[in-house]
């Protein structure tokens, strides 16, 4: 009996752990390994054989000296600093409105807002690219007719066109997380606030906002990680937007290094840097949000 209870957790965990080792631990370990390895191909096409050796930090140095890669990280920081707060503020406003007494048909609106989450980023980008490209887009046509020419795909605007696609996709999903937390606020709190004569804005500010904090922190962390991983949207949009180069985001950079340049060492170093940046930013965000409490 006792031995059965000692063995049981490991039997239950075994399938997950086996797959986890295979798809997380080993790949991460080998990425770190590759990032410290240099490969020399002998002869023009490597026909003379391939030798590899310990490279120290030279792949990291190469990754960090690559202006395109550094620029892509800066671009994602700018993207995150603008898009994440805009999206989260939009989520909170929509959640509060849907949970307020003034909203008609809240169920229908909630469902409509959630629809884009189910549409894959690639397909969402194809959809929006049709709405961005002059000639097909009824939106640019509308602006042209009003005498205000707009170009959604110019070097200065295309980042925000991507931000629009991301916001469109994830607002409804994050809003549902916030609504779930709003629903868990005990009714007595509202009751006593009303007794004190608090109006809807006062209730939102001093009861609802502080209590949805955990949900906001959660959605914030996932949005930060998501921003660093941005890939499908810029890659697909690049077919119509020449302003998006092969190093537009950190992930595109690593992808190009690996599959266009065939340099797995530098690509792995970039993947490790992306993962580390995700960790550092998530923990910084968590530390900042915890301290203010």
């Amino acid at each position: 009996m006792k031995t059965a209870q000692k063995r049981a957790p490991w039997i239950l965990l075994a399938p997950f752990l086996l797959l986890f080792v295979f798809t997380f631990v080993l790949p991460i370990a080998s990425a770190v390994g590759y990032s410290f390895t240099s490969v020399q191909r002998l002869g023009l096409f490597g026909e003379g054989g391939v030798t590899s050796g310990f490279a120290g930090f030279s792949n990291y140095a190469a990754a960090l000296e690559d202006g395109g890669f550094i620029a892509s990280i800066g671009r994602m920081l700018l993207f995150g600093v603008v898009q994440v707060p805009v999206m989260l503020i939009l989520c909170v406003i929509l959640a509060l409105l849907l949970e307020s007494a003034s909203a008609k048909w809240p169920g229908a609106f909630r469902a409509a807002y959630f629809v884009p989450y189910g549409i894959p980023g690639v397909i969402a980008t194809i959809l929006w690219s049709f709405l961005y490209v002059p000639g097909i887009s009824p939106i640019t046509g509308l602006f042209d007719a009003m005498g205000i020419p707009v170009d959604f795909l110019s070097p200065s605007t295309v980042l925000w066109s991507i931000a629009n696609i991301v916001t469109w996709t994830y607002t409804g999903y994050n809003m549902l997380i916030i609504i779930a937390q709003l629903k868990s606020i005990p009714g007595e709190l509202y009751e006593s606030a009303r007794m004190d004569g608090a109006g809807p804005f006062k209730v939102a500010w001093s009861i609802q906002l502080p209590l949805i904090r955990p949900a906001l922190v959660l959605t914030g962390v996932f949005s930060i990680i998501g921003t660093l991983q941005l890939f499908a949207e810029p890659q697909v949009l690049a077919t119509v937007a020449p302003a998006i180069d092969s190093q537009y985001t950190p992930n595109l950079s690593a992808f190009t290094q690996a599959f266009t340049n065939g340099d797995y060492g530098v690509a792995s170093a970039q993947a490790v840097i992306i993962a580390l940046a995700a960790f550092v930013l998530s923990f910084t965000f968590l530390a900042l949000t915890n301290r203010k409490r």
């Binding site: 080993l26 790949p27 990425a31 993947a271």
Partner: peptide, 24 residues
């Protein structure tokens, strides 16, 4: 230890593991 390891997995960007997984 096991839980901590898996929790770390939540934070690792999926795309950071995809490339080495391809090589593997």
């Amino acid at each position: 230890l096991v839980f901590g390891l898996i929790l770390g997995g939540v934070l690792v960007p999926a795309t950071a593991t995809a490339l080495p997984m391809f090589l593997l």
